[in-house]
Design a protein around this nucleic acid. Structure first.
Length: 476
RNA sequence: GGCGGGGUAGCCAAGUGGUAAGGCAGGGCUCUGCAAAAGCCUUAUGCGUCGGUUCGAUUCCGACCCUCGCCUCCA
């Protein structure tokens, strides 16, 4: 049995089987960031989960084409651009670069394509035109173009497949009334938004007048351009299931570009949100953290990645500072073990332990059960530690153990901790302490130990002599 | 109101119709000049409540309680 994955379309865990008849090639599209601000920890939970999925599929032998869009035109962006008095591109490139940097900090593999909405206006216009030609979209009096859900359903398609929707029972919020002046039906959504004065210079010409794309259309246009009209896997945050993804399906299948009998997307994956300290993250509650905030507090990208990878992607995850401390300790346990193995292994090479790898695969094949996979990893760590303590680990065994970890780390992407080299000054203090110890001047030795600690270096006295360890700590 | 998650040790978190992975914290031990660090060992008669099915239920069924999210800005 291969990798099993929950599919929002069927609401079941099912085997992941791509369209490719050889069963190898996978087209994967992830809804990426809207670049109006620095990404927060919630955003990155989804992106790290997507990265895990991509890595796992590759680990399982699939050849993945990973596309992640950059939404660089949208209401919030336009509002900020107006405030900042910058050009759209100036404004968005700042946050786009920050996003890419953050993704690197978190060890995410760069997607193969990162298309920007603003660079796909022709494709977007063509797709809208196609929908108009098919009678599913209509131009309103103000020059906006809307998608007609009634017409779409009349053409034999079903709207509301990702979420069970009962439109009669739905609460009609104020937001619904707000911008519904020119729609035929409240459920209809914008494909093209006519230019309004507040948009400033943000506008493109179109057959329906100047304006800009609606929110959902860019993903349909760009995913179909890069992955074809029918592809395997679409990933995003759970909040996007409705309306964003539902509308993407409607637009894409409404254009009827798919081969007979094939859907726009075969397998939909949604990542649950996270809470921070048990509450929905919000600036007013003071529990709103960008990745940068956390890095600034002294936590490493690896530690944050580890924490995000501890919890199952479909469960709401409660992000806490205490959790981050736990993550640091747990990752430290793993790092410690790896560093001991590294020392013993030297340049020796070996093959991974197939039994451990098999358990690891069994865990992750079950809808990416990372908790079980970490269970495998830490069982293995304990086993290795016992062997290390008993002095039973030869170069070859250490190398095999390292190979085992590296194999698993293809999926986790944590890499190895960067061992910090002690500067000469620190090394010298350590030497002095050793001399003092040898002379049995323990007072002096203990003073030097305290001095080193103040300077951020911990002495670890081992049977093989002292080792220096840089203190990881929260800086502020 | 509709729809969908979740309630497992001090905390986080897997899991199974047959008697509870893993991590953190705590406790004990080893090592040490003493420490620290590290490692090992240890920690739930119990899985929200009450019923039912069963030889046996935390796991299945029913009811109830609590909690979180979505319902056209949102990762």
């Amino acid at each position: 049995m291969g990798a099993q994955l929950f599919n929002t379309l069927t609401r079941r865990v099912e085997e992941f089987v791509p369209f490719d008849t050889a069963g190898k090639k996978v087209g994967m599209y992830c809804c990426g960031p809207t670049v109006y601000d620095f990404g927060h920890i919630g955003n990155f939970r989804t992106f790290v989960s997507s990265d895990l999925l991509r890595r796992y599929l590759e680990f399982r032998g699939f050849s993945v084409t990973h596309v992640m869009n950059i939404t660089d035109v949208e209401d919030k962006i336009i509002a900020r651009v107006r405030q900042a008095g910058a050009s759209l591109r100036e404004y968005t490139s700042k946050f786009e670069n920050a996003f890419l940097e953050d993704m690197r900090s978190l060890g995410c593999v760069p997607p193969h394509h990162m298309p920007r909405a603003t660079e796909h206006i022709p494709q977007i216009i063509a797709l809208i035109q196609k929908l108009i030609d098919r009678g599913i979209a209509y131009r309103a009096a103000d020059g906006s173009v809307y998608f007609s859900i009634d017409k779409y359903q009349a053409s034999g398609c079903k709207y509301g497949r990702l979420v069970n929707l009962n439109f009669d029972e739905m609460r009609r919020g104020e937001r619904v009334q707000a911008d519904e002046y020119s729609k035929e039906s409240v459920a209809d959504f914008a494909l093209w938004k006519a230019h309004v004065p507040e948009d400033g210079a943000v506008a493109w010409p179109s057959p329906w007048g100047d304006g800009r794309p609606g929110w959902h259309i860019e993903c349909s246009a760009m995913s179909m351009k890069l992955l074809g009209p029918s592809f395997d896997l679409h990933v995003g945050g759970e909040d996007l299931a409705f309306p964003h993804h539902e509308d993407e399906i409607a637009q894409s299948e409404g254009a009827a570009l798919q081969p007979e009998g094939r859907p726009f997307v075969k397998h939909w994956v949604h990542c649950a949100h996270l809470l921070v300290e048990g509450k929905k993250m919000s600036k007013s509650l003071g529990n709103y953290f960008t990745l940068r905030d956390l890095l600034q507090k002294g936590y490493g990208g690896r530690e944050i990645r580890y924490l995000l990878l501890k919890a199952h992607y479909r469960e709401t995850f409660n992000f806490t500072m205490e959790g981050l401390e736990e993550a640091r300790a747990a990752l430290g346990r793993l790092d410690e073990c790896l560093s001991k193995l590294q020392e013993i292994a030297g340049p020796a090479t070996a093959e991974p332990d197939p039994e451990v790898i098999a358990k690891f695969i069994a865990a992750l094949d079950d809808d990416l059960n990372v908790s079980a996979a970490w269970g495998v990893v830490f069982d293995w760590v304990r086993d290795i530690n016992r062997q290390l303590a008993a002095g039973e680990v030869s170069n070859e065994r250490a190398a095999a153990a390292l190979a085992t970890w590296r194999r698993m780390d293809v999926v986790f992407g944590l890499g190895q901790k960067q061992e910090s080299e002690a500067p000469a000054e620190i090394q010298q203090l350590l030497d002095e302490r050793q001399a003092a110890r040898k002379a049995r001047d323990f007072k002096r030795a203990d003073e030097l130990r305290a001095t080193l600690k103040d300077k951020g270096w911990l002495i670890e006295d081992t049977p093989k002599g002292p080792k220096l360890k840089k203190v990881e700590g929260v800086l502020s």
